[in-house]
Amino acid sequence: MKAVIGSTVVAEAATEDLVKIEGNWYFPPSSLTEGAYEKSPTAYHCPWKGDTQYWNVGMGDDVLADGGWSYPAPIPSSFDRVGQDYTGYVAFDRRVTISE
């Protein structure tokens, strides 16, 4: 699967390496394109997953503010609900094209 913004591939991994949570594909940290992520100051807390880290995602003219998010330290009980540890995995908002 690929996550693409404009002409920039910001993540790419085999489908079996991704985690699907609430309809969103989460890409593993090893699949993220180096240099395509900058921490955003936007704060959010999910009651069952924990504190969210938002990311400005992309490169050059293809950058989306708050285009991705991850959970750097998820609430441990959420692993049971998800079925695995998804620490640091990144999901993308609807402005990012996810394709096989």
Rank of each mutant, 00 (worst) to 15 (best):
T87S: 10
G50P: 03
W55S: 00
W55Y: 03
P74E: 07
S99G: 08
R81D: 05
A65L: 14
V57W: 03
T52H: 03
T97D: 15
T97L: 11
R94S: 15
Y26M: 04
S31M: 01
K20M: 14
V63H: 10
G60I: 02
M1K: 12
W55T: 00
N24W: 11
A73D: 14
G68E: 08
V10G: 07
K20I: 15
A91F: 00
A14W: 12
M59L: 15
Y71W: 13
P74V: 06
R94C: 05
D51Y: 15
I21C: 13
E12N: 06
P41D: 13
G58C: 05
G68Q: 06
Q84E: 15
R95D: 07
G67S: 07
L18Q: 06
L32P: 00
P41Y: 11
M1C: 10
G68K: 02
Q53K: 05
T15W: 10
T97R: 15
G88T: 00
V57Q: 01
F27D: 03
V4Q: 14
V19I: 14
P28Y: 03
M59G: 10
G58V: 04
Y71S: 07
G83F: 08
W48T: 01
H45P: 00
G6D: 11
Y86F: 13
K39W: 04
T8Q: 11
I21S: 13
N24I: 09
P28V: 03
W48L: 06
T97N: 15
G68S: 06
G68F: 09
D80R: 12
W69Y: 11
V19E: 10
V96T: 15
M59P: 05
W69M: 10
V90I: 07
S31L: 00
I21D: 12
V82L: 12
A65V: 15
Q84V: 04
V10P: 08
R81T: 08
A43I: 13
S31G: 01
V96M: 07
E38G: 01
R94Y: 08
Y89P: 02
S78H: 02
F79T: 04
P72I: 11
T42D: 11
K49H: 07
Y44G: 07
W55L: 03
K2A: 08
V90D: 00
L32W: 04
D66C: 05
E34W: 00
Q84Y: 00
T52L: 14
V82Q: 09
A14V: 07
M1P: 12
G23Q: 08
W48P: 00
Y26G: 03
G68M: 05
T42G: 05
D51Q: 06
I98P: 02
E100L: 06
G83C: 01
T15E: 14
G88A: 01
S31Q: 05
S31I: 02
L64G: 09
E12T: 04
P29S: 03
E34P: 03
K49M: 09
S99R: 11
K39G: 03
I5P: 05
S99E: 13
A14C: 05
F79A: 05
G58D: 10
Y86V: 03
P28T: 02
P28R: 04
D85L: 03
